[in-house]
Design a protein around this nucleic acid. Sequence first.
DNA 1: ATATAAAATTAGATAAGACTAATTTTGTGT
DNA 2: ACACAAAATTAGTCTTATCTAATTTTATAT
Lengths: 217, 217
Amino acid sequence: MYTLSEENYLKSIYRLSQQPNFKITPTAIAESLKNNPASVVDMIRKLTDKQLIEYDKKKGVKLTPVGLKDAVLIVRRHRLWEVFLLEKLGYHWDEIHDIAEELEHISDASLADRLDKFLGFPEYDPHGDPIPKANGKVPKPYSVTLADLKTGDTCRVAAVKDTSSSFLQYLQKLDIGIGTNIKLLEKIPYDNSLVISISGKESTTVSQKFGENILVD
Amino acid sequence: MYTLSEENYLKSIYRLSQQPNFKITPTAIAESLKNNPASVVDMIRKLTDKQLIEYDKKKGVKLTPVGLKDAVLIVRRHRLWEVFLLEKLGYHWDEIHDIAEELEHISDASLADRLDKFLGFPEYDPHGDPIPKANGKVPKPYSVTLADLKTGDTCRVAAVKDTSSSFLQYLQKLDIGIGTNIKLLEKIPYDNSLVISISGKESTTVSQKFGENILVD
DNA sequence: ATATAAAATTAGATAAGACTAATTTTGTGT
DNA sequence: ACACAAAATTAGTCTTATCTAATTTTATAT
Ligand SMILES: [Mn+2]
Ligand SMILES: [Mn+2]
Ligand SMILES: [Mn+2]
Ligand SMILES: [Mn+2]
């Protein structure tokens, strides 16, 4: 159906489209794929010809209904494989993303659905991201971040925005995972650093960037 | 490490090398990969440069120790994924080969070993082919075919040589699978057709080609 | 409004892997 | 040894996807 590259572009565009009010430019796509804007311009032409995206200079890139449907199916496969790797093969949550990045491209009509069933129809992947359903419906993702809370608020970690191993390993070190309870003790006005209590334990200070990459419930 | 194409060539050369006294020529490789001899010549050069194979005009293509080791690891992944697809996801044995053909290329250092453990260290894949061990040792494959038997002999189906869906579906129709008992009732001298009894039931006639593609115990 | 910077695009190059068509080498039968 | 066929190889083309460098367009700041 699609080449590996086409699928990676579709997925990248989909991910960028999740950021509200964000204009999806060639540069943004290039950054997200760690490649060159010139290459992106080529692929934009190709995907436009295939009617998977529309490109308006003013509005940026937008997925067509067909492009969206297929992008969502790739995301579905990615997240299902992540669940498999963690739950069945015993990988840690900082190791699974790159492998799923390859597995998501395996094309077989019934593979995702069989995997879904085998895994017991999980709702969320190991990073807390919602797993699109077979019909293409995507459960609403979490949207409030730790950095959005007010002093004194308590929350449950629901998902992580950043899935890089450096971030995930840091979380591991802090004993934070999906489900961990966090209380915001103080917000440092100077640089918006956050003083938090993890699982009721003594306080720790984390950066604003850190807080913005944790989605809470 | 290797490109998709390189891996497919390595695996194809390995498979051909399993046929005793068979000279592995560019044409043979081309046939096995359903591509063009000219393309094969290019790849022979590439793999030779990488010291994965040696090519002697007289003796044909041969895997070097390194090439052999890596080819075996690809076969290991292929066969492990086939077990997974059949046992865990409920595919039938005629559907798994093509999917495993893609899955075998997923490159992660510990993936095959974790999958192996998850599956309970299976000895044989769903077609009866031995699964190479993590250390690269390959259990001895079955070698006697149904066509090798003498009239009156009884055997157990141990493996199938041909994994095409047309062959596997035919076997399914005849109620033959790994483990099925077959008795050779008669060999027709004219064209070596085989009259057999499957699981003790009434007799069926199959072709010589059919018999040569069933390995027995 | 104009200079400057940033972003987008074009032009041209490269690499992998496949193909077809032409040519050369090898093998076989007489 | 010679003729013919088959196999191997070379030459040249194509597609996909990437890059760098040059150019054009768009945005921003004074
Ligand atoms: Mn990917
Ligand atoms: Mn994830
Ligand atoms: Mn393959
Ligand atoms: Mn098999």
